[in-house]
Amino acid sequence: MTLRLPALALLALLPAAARAQEATQLSYAIYAAGLNVLVVDSKAEFGPRDYRIDLAYRTTGLYGTFIPVRIDSFAQGSWNGARPAPQRFASWGVARGKERRITLDYPGGQPVIRTLVPATEPDRDPVPPAQQRDTMDTLSAMAFLVRQVAQTGRCDGTVRIFDGRRVLETQSVTAGSESLSEDYRSAFKGTALRCDMRGRQLAGFQHDADEAEIRRVHVSHAWLAPLVPGQPALPVRVSFETRFFGSATAYLTQFGPTQAVR
């Protein structure tokens, strides 16, 4: 199952201090064609030096009955100025009846594939090492967006993402503040900063895919707002494209503190 945007990477940052930290638990429901097709749970912590993101998503409802998917993932790293410096990314689970596992480490700041299941498909172009350089994982890319908004009030920036199979480039620009009205699918209403993102695949193309489709620019939008006064803005809504069910929107459904022990 392929999502066109690292939209499930919905947060955050983690202090390195070896003590109990108050984390934020967030849940999202993703709707497509009026149906709830995915649920997402994330744990997020913010810190000045290090970060970690834990995220799980699964298909649900009728869609989940026919196409069962359950993926867990995490990313951890430190901050190099304003940009993330990933240390490890891991993702594992089952999608469409097949085991999926990816582990990336970043010795010297560059990605190294430790685990890749299934192995690189023969019908997919391998990503040359030169195109893997200076990339980050999907979760770190969204952490970068959240940090940009927290530090500058804007979401302008460009990142290159390597997920073990493909390289994507995503550019985010500030679109301004918008008022999100009450919606039965969402726990949030109010003013949020809208970030418009344009993503395109640069490497790791499948031979049997529609070339025009995989090379075109995909547009998505994220709305961020503080959930607690004085705290950084977090994603409260994300609209994006998927390969299997077209346009989709993730709505924040629950949020609150959870205790993470380090």
Rank of each mutant, 00 (worst) to 15 (best):
T2R: 14
A7N: 00
L8G: 06
L14C: 15
P15K: 09
A16C: 15
A20S: 12
A23D: 05
Y28L: 02
Y31Q: 02
L38I: 01
V40D: 00
R49T: 13
Y51D: 09
I53M: 13
I53W: 11
T59K: 07
L62R: 05
L62N: 04
I67Q: 11
P68D: 01
V69K: 01
A75P: 05
W79H: 10
W79I: 07
N80P: 08
P84E: 08
P86I: 12
Q87A: 15
R88I: 07
W92K: 13
E99N: 11
L104V: 05
L104T: 03
I113G: 09
T120K: 06
D125P: 05
D125L: 04
Q131I: 04
Q132N: 09
Q132I: 06
T152N: 13
G153N: 12
R154S: 14
C155W: 01
R165N: 10
L180H: 00
S186K: 01
A192E: 03
L193M: 10
R194M: 04
R200I: 03
Q201C: 07
L202V: 03
H207K: 12
A212C: 11
R215K: 14
V219Y: 10
V219C: 10
L224H: 02
P226A: 11
P232M: 11
P232F: 10
E241T: 02
T242R: 00
A248Q: 00
T249Q: 01
A250F: 02
Y251D: 07
T253W: 02
F255I: 03
R262M: 07
